[in-house]
């Protein structure tokens, strides 16, 4: 028990937790993106899917779990980032290095892209989960018309633009985050060719999937 405690308190252990929660969140965005694809099938399929999710009694357990994963990921990552800043200690006249041997851009701005993703998630919940309730009824069952809400929001070029921008940020976060998680867990190095390609592919699938939805909504919305 003492060795597990020591592990979780160490830098390696905390990075392990950031990695494993990051992969959990990656799994969530994948299912979220795939579920949203039902909007292309039609309003009925999409709304019924949303209704089934929200009326499932396990949804509360899943929500609490997801929230816990989200806050562990974010809290630990911020705590580690503050430690990193303290460890660096550059004099004001010393510029951060921008040189031949530097690391890839996305990997250097994980905290920044992460904070932007957090801002997006908060606004996203306000817009959709806690947004206006439009009732619709299929086969005698009343449910929320989420499809209408989505199309309404995506009709605004400003909202769609912000959404697309956020997806580019999420893409950058996932490209590094996905492969880096496997390194933090001790499975593969981020230099591993397969895991590197998988990181790019995963980020591409997620961001790509979320990309076509606002574009569709924008045109479907009668613009």
């Amino acid at each position: 028990m003492a060795s597990i405690k020591l592990f979780l308190k160490s830098s390696v252990g905390r990075k392990f937790l950031v990695g494993i929660t990051g992969l959990g969140l990656s799994g969530f965005v994948l299912t979220h993106m795939a579920g949203n694809m039902l909007m292309f099938v039609g309003p009925e399929a999409y709304n019924t899917y949303g209704h089934k999710l929200i009326t499932n009694p396990f949804i509360y357990i899943a929500e609490v779990g997801l929230l816990a994963i989200f806050f562990v990921h974010m809290g630990l990552a911020l705590c580690l980032a503050l430690e990193n800043k303290k460890a660096r200690a550059l004099a004001p006249s010393q510029k951060p290095s921008n040189c031949e041997k530097d690391a890839r851009l996305g990997s250097r701005y994980m905290v920044h892209t992460g904070i932007l993703v957090f801002v997006f998630v908060v606004l996203h919940l306000i817009t959709f989960k806690y947004g206006p309730y439009y009732p619709v009824s299929y086969h005698g069952v009343e449910m929320r018309d989420l499809h209408r809400l989505i199309v309404e929001n995506f009709k605004s070029p400003l909202y769609s633009g912000w959404y697309l921008f956020s997806m580019v940020i999420l893409f950058s976060h996932l490209v590094h985050g996905f492969s880096a998680s496997f390194q933090s867990l001790g499975f593969f190095s981020v230099r591993n060719c397969l895991i590197k390609k998988m990181g790019w592919a995963f980020a591409f699938i997620i961001a790509g999937g979320f990309f076509i939805q606002p574009i569709y909504g924008y045109f479907y919305g009668g613009n």
Partner: peptide, 10 residues
């Protein structure tokens, strides 16, 4: 007081 690894590869 060393920082933590963020797998950048620098």
């Amino acid at each position: 007081g060393f920082g933590n690894c963020s797998n950048t590869g620098a």
